[in-house]
Design a protein around this nucleic acid. Structure first.
Lengths: 179, 179, 179, 179
DNA sequence: GATGAATGAGCATTCATTCAT
DNA sequence: GATGAATGAATGCTCATTCAT
């Protein structure tokens, strides 16, 4: 993950990864079928864990607004906890069809957001004149762009800035959706 | 542009581009210094034109809300006018540090959005308790994610859906920012 | 052909072939799809020419015995004319299923021999109590083994020895088949 | 032997052999010095046994013709008894200089055949105007090609066909050599 | 005896780029 | 302008072999 984060998928040679791990490059092929499988595994294991947390939020006994806020927090705080992971996700996974097979899993986050929004609309928390599906993409895009800003260095990611970003994103979204 | 859109930057060989253009691949080097220069040129020429249109909106004598709406429309309608361009932008330019030299230009759109938001805050149109810089990233991210949805096929892009996306995105943003 | 003859298919590196030819190894891939394609091409072009000569003999207006003798001569004299070709054929093509797609073409020689033998039997030149198909394999095997002996150095291939081999092989075969 | 027969020497990985044998691949190196040593051992043990039988035939108190017939029978019947062995011999050992050290042993069969033929010539059984050395190669080649036909599937190897091949090969050879 | 993680030499193949024509 | 033969650096991957356990 760190090698991909530093050099990008194409820029990272298999031997770079192995060197980073302190093993011979051949050993990599005991554990992974190919260089791409390494990326796929990084994605699968980490995104799966994130999805699990999103689902837990969805199941929680909270208002839809709190659920959205919870998901946003998980996503944005991942930058602090695991910047290499976020870097790889943002640069190699999010938009490239490199991991076609995983597209479904990537989109699961949209489904979760959509369901939460629909729930909010049903409960009267959120306005009903908004397409929940579209809103889920728009909200997620806003969050991902903040992560991208941090990854590419366009946005400050000091502790206070991260906190402010969290508040801003949540605030914008909830006001945008509020009934 | 079409070749990059179809195959991606890494997946497209110089000879693919030349074949697409109906010339020998050697000729490409009369017009471009390298394969990367082709991408750079695509970006420069097209993004420059978009930026010009964004700036025109910024200069117009309209409310800040209308300016934001105008920018969103330009961005989203580009998909219909030039899907290959959007595909290349979304997949090859937006996140990769491939075009480092152009990062500044990419970010110009954030500056424009930020200035429009600040203007709206100054005029009392928009709430003042929002960091304009952050908001510009978040709004742009929402729009770009919709484009991504269209590029990768996750969101329907029929004529009515494109229009609805436009309204939804603008509506969410303006309600989120409204004073 | 010479590189394969010297080093064997597996022992020859692509760069050996290219070096032998005095070009960069990359150029090889302008003309051949792969290392294996080089072998295939060697086979196709040369075996095809040999087959053509065998067919010419078959069509000739001669006794079946003379036809068999003619085919044997062509085969054995190829060693003198083109030892590298024979070496490659004997070592890389004849028995390995490496060129599965060409198996049919390899077997064409058996068909030709079989037809000549059948013709001889019909004419009363050859005894009729012999399975022509089997005989074609046996005769061809005898010839090929002589070539093998020359390739691997087990049999002397001086000019007089080559001539004697020719006479011996033909003599054995014709006496074996004689009515 | 079965792994080499199925996949060829180069196509068979050490781990394929080990898997076939139901052990870990590392264990192979307790019993064999190398992959090539496995092939060598297969050859040595089996070819040695065959040679022993050939020599027994040579020593027997029979006519030269019967001796030739005996050797042919042993060789061809091995296909039925041990097709994998024959496959390996035909494809990996016979022509490749892979087992250079064993070349002598391979050629022992030619020596035996040659001596039998010489004996037949001395006794007046066989015509004297044939080079015994050459004849031994030619006869052996005929037999080996029949085996090759069975191995590669070009010749039918049903029980009756095997028997007919035996008769045909012996018949052709003896008539070819007959005084 | 037995395992399988670990090694690293070896090699085919790709493809951007050059340049003589 | 235009071609495409020629180059060669770069790299993913394979697999025989070793050896600590």
């Amino acid at each position: 993950m760190r090698t991909f984060a530093d050099l990008g998928f194409h820029g990272a040679r298999v031997s770079d990864i192995a060197e980073h791990a302190g093993v011979a490059h051949g050993l990599l092929y005991h554990y992974f079928a190919s260089k791409e499988d390494v990326l796929q595994t990084i994605f699968r294991e980490n995104w799966g864990a994130l999805l699990e947390r999103f689902r837990a939020v969805e199941r929680a006994d909270e208002s839809a607004a709190d659920k959205l806020a919870g998901i946003a927090k998980i996503l944005l705080r991942t930058w602090r906890n695991d910047p290499a992971l976020v870097t790889v996700m943002v640069r190699e996974v999010a938009r490239s069809p490199k991991l076609q097979s995983q597209v479904e899993e990537v989109r699961e986050v949209f489904s979760i957001l959509e369901r939460v929004i629909l729930e909010g609309q049903r409960r009267g928390e959120f306005r009903a004149d908004i397409d929940a599906r579209l809103a889920s993409w728009i909200l997620y895009g806003g969050l991902e762009e903040v992560l991208t800003g941090w990854v590419l260095g366009g946005l400050s990611d000091s502790a206070t800035d991260v906190e402010r970003a969290e508040r801003t994103a949540i605030d914008l979204a909830l006001r945008g959706l509020a009934a």
